[in-house]
Design a protein around this nucleic acid. Structure first.
Length: 702
DNA sequence: GAGCACTGC
């Protein structure tokens, strides 16, 4: 490993190392969620809150920001992490009277946890109860009151939903779109909707776009175009502001020659840091859970052989872990020990781990991509972007100067192998949900819509064809069909699952089972836990719920049994049957939310209908939404072939049909996964006649 | 006989 001192320019530029103090920051704030607010965080500090607020970099820009927003309908704020932009800007606007007219200042976040935590933090800073002046609104949790809430944190998805009821967002005087560099589909949609709304509201709405990256010009160009048409010519519509962050310098170290195996290299790097570097925790970025598990085991083994096990605290972090399991990664190492956290991308933006001084970056990430030709999702491991590398490195400099060890050469990093930015979601995911929402908002022509970034035409046409095949679009006008299409757009579900649900309720009269099925599938994952040493007992319990019709019916059995268990003993019941109670609780909440939405759509009477033991009704209901994912057994008796498109597919080993012999001749699946083979997950055995019944047009050529 | 990155309404 090269020890040449190399300071990454994009990291050191604009970073304010000198004079930086540990105090209130976005990071300290997120950390407080895990209960560590007393460690150098703002909340436990003796310093009065007002004093802490004044020390934030954002405070020095207060007047400048307020002037900019007074004189410009759109302000773009480039803020480094730790600048205080997310917590302070809305407060400055509130203090300056932007909410005095009874309207609210909205601040959107891509993630629920960030919205809730920011609201928590800001309500404390302002000394008010959460849900009064300061509130938040995310799925399943609404701490807002329309009468009193003036600063409102919400996810961008929630604000888009609010657009459906209030297309001009008339309840807001200012909308701040935070973390715009993430470029989620929801953020992209919101930018486009806000541009339209700005033109209609004639100057009484302000938009603040807050982004960590430096491509402010792109945001400016997009919103400037809005004003060249019907506003005064020339400049004056969009202002750009830059707020430096609170970040210590991070020295970058590259490999002198490429490594063959990033897993081996990362463990070596950890052991070297541990042997040679002064105190400070190590954060290692790996692409997936399996890598992390292996790394934990091998690091353990290395440390044991070197007789240094008592000097290392080895932890892992990924989104799938329970809160208790995650907590260990945030626990401080005991005295005399150094903590190592092997993490997926969650640690890149979503959470901040205190005390990290060294970052090891393998240079890879797992990303979902959608193939419009087959209509299938794939999970691929690919090289990270340069901005992602900078973000990962920055994690080493939150509390003191740090070091990043990059497991690739500096030549490779400068080459085209690492893209400048990540491919935004609108260019790599299925656009069916976006297309439905835009249609529901009255956007007729999705091809000529003024996107922040235009999606690839093949993704857009695939989405429209897909929605048409489900019966959500009128054949000629491509408007949403009055009942089905509009309802589908209102459901917080993937379009295929939404179609299963609506047909299950209205057509197949099995609302109870249909709701249970889509709720379980929406949560995702495997409800059956296999504890070490108790695999045979756990396997026996799994068999109690298993049915030959496949995974989805098995999931329905599990959730209905859970729901029939009295609430106070559900958790013990789950332990007894080796089930993941967190997952079932989440599925139960989703099923209740869906029930409420269906009742509002006028299906109150149908809601209690059940198909009982008549499973075929539920199977036909599933086919009505999943027919595009139909596969037929090949002559070999194990592999399948997609009915439309012809890809060869395999039953995923997690499926209850994996061991079944003989296998069903026809199946529908919920998702495809490409790893060593193209696997089908969440299967249901079907009768091929149901395919033509559900979608005669779709299978007419067969 | 393999293994789910991460969000969100």
């Amino acid at each position: 490993m090269s020890t040449k001192r190399y300071r990454n320019e994009s990291l050191s530029s604009g970073f304010n190392g000198e004079g930086a103090i540990a105090g209130a920051s976005d990071g300290a704030f997120i950390r407080s969620y895990y209960g560590y607010e007393n460690q150098a965080g703002a909340l436990g500090s003796r310093e009065p809150i007002e004093e802490q607020r004044r020390r934030l970099p954002a405070f020095g820009h207060r007047a400048q920001l307020l002037y900019a927003i007074e004189t410009h309908p759109v302000v773009i704020v480039i803020g480094e992490p730790g600048s205080g932009k997310s917590t302070q800007l809305p407060q400055y606007l509130y203090e300056a009277g932007w909410a005095a007219n009874g309207k609210a200042i909205g601040c959107t976040q891509p993630r629920r946890i960030a919205a809730a935590m920011l609201a928590q933090r800001v309500s404390q800073e302002m000394g008010v109860e959460i849900g009064t002046t300061v509130g938040y609104s995310v799925r399943f949790s609404d701490a807002c009151s329309p009468e009193t809430t003036r600063i409102k944190y919400l996810t961008d998805g929630t604000l888009i939903r609010e657009c459906l009821a209030d297309p001009l967002l008339s309840a807001y005087s200012v909308v701040m779109v935070d973390e715009a560099q993430d470029r989620t589909i929801a953020t992209d949609m919101l930018l486009a909707l806000l541009k339209k709304i700005l033109c209609r509201r004639k100057g009484d709405l302000r938009v603040v776009i807050s982004s960590a990256s430096l491509d402010a010009e792109r945001f400016k160009t997009y919103f400037d175009a809005c004003y060249s048409a019907d506003g005064p010519p020339g400049t004056g519509s969009v202002a750009i502001l830059s707020i430096s962050g609170r970040q210590f310098p991070v020295d970058s170290h590259y490999l002198t020659k490429p490594c063959e195996n990033y897993l081996v290299a990362s463990i070596e790097a950890v052991m070297k840091i541990h042997a040679r570097e002064p105190a400070g925790d190590i954060l290692v970025f790996l692409p997936g859970k399996d890598d992390i598990g292996q790394a934990v085991a091998e690091t353990h083994e290395h440390a044991r052989r070197e007789n240094r096990l008592d000097t290392l605290m080895i932890t892992s972090l990924s989104a799938g872990l329970s809160t208790d399991e995650q907590r260990r990664a945030f626990d401080p190492a005991p005295p005399g020990q150094r903590k190592v956290v092997y993490s997926t991308n969650v640690a890149e933006t979503s959470v901040t781990i205190d005390g990290v001084v060294y970052v090891v970056d393998c240079g890879f990430v797992k990303q979902r991509v959608f193939d419009p030709a087959s209509g299938l999702d794939h999970l691929v491991t690919r090289a990270i972007s340069k901005s992602s590398a900078v973000q990962r490195a920055g994690r080493a400099g939150r509390t003191q100067p740090g070091k990043v060890y990059r497991l690739y050469t500096s030549e490779a990093f400068s080459s085209g192998l690492f893209a400048r930015h990540d491919v935004p979601e609108i260019c790599r995911l299925s656009l069916a949900p976006m297309a439905m929402t835009l249609k529901a908002l009255g956007v007729d022509n999705l091809v000529r819509f003024d996107y922040f970034q235009s999606p690839p035409p093949e993704l857009l046409s695939q989405a429209l064809e897909h929605l048409a095949s489900l019966g959500a679009l009128e054949p000629q006008s491509t408007a949403l069909t009055p009942g089905f299409g509009l309802y589908l757009a209102e459901l917080p579900l993937d379009s295929m699952l939404g179609a299963c649900l609506l047909n299950g309720v209205a057509k197949y009269k099995c609302a109870r089972e249909a709701i249970a099925a889509v709720a379980m599938l929406a949560v995702g994952g495997d409800p059956f836990v296999m504890p070490n040493g108790q695999c045979s007992e756990a396997g026996a319990d799994k068999r109690d719920f298993m049915v030959v019709e496949g995974d989805v019916l098995t999931l329905v059995n599990v959730l209905i049994a859970y729901q029939e268990t009295p609430a106070r003993v559900r958790s013990q019941w789950c332990d007894l049957h080796f089930l993941n109670s967190r997952m079932l609780d989440q599925a139960d909440r989703i099923s209740r939310q869906l029930g409420g939405l269906l009742a509002k759509m006028g299906y109150l009477r149908e809601l209690c209908l059940s198909c009982g033991r008549d499973f075929t009704r539920l199977q036909r209901c599933l086919v009505s939404g999943l027919f595009a994912n139909a596969a037929r057994l090949e002559a070999d008796g194990t592999s399948y072939r997609l009915v439309r498109g012809g890809s060869v597919m395999w039953v995923h080993p997690s499926s209850v049909l994996f061991q079944a012999t003989p296998k069903p001749v026809f199946v529908v699946f919920v998702e495809a996964m490409q790893t060593t083979k193209l696997y089908m997950r969440s299967l249901t055995a079907i009768d091929p006649n149901w395919l033509t019944e559900a979608a005669p047009h779709y299978f007419s050529a067969e």
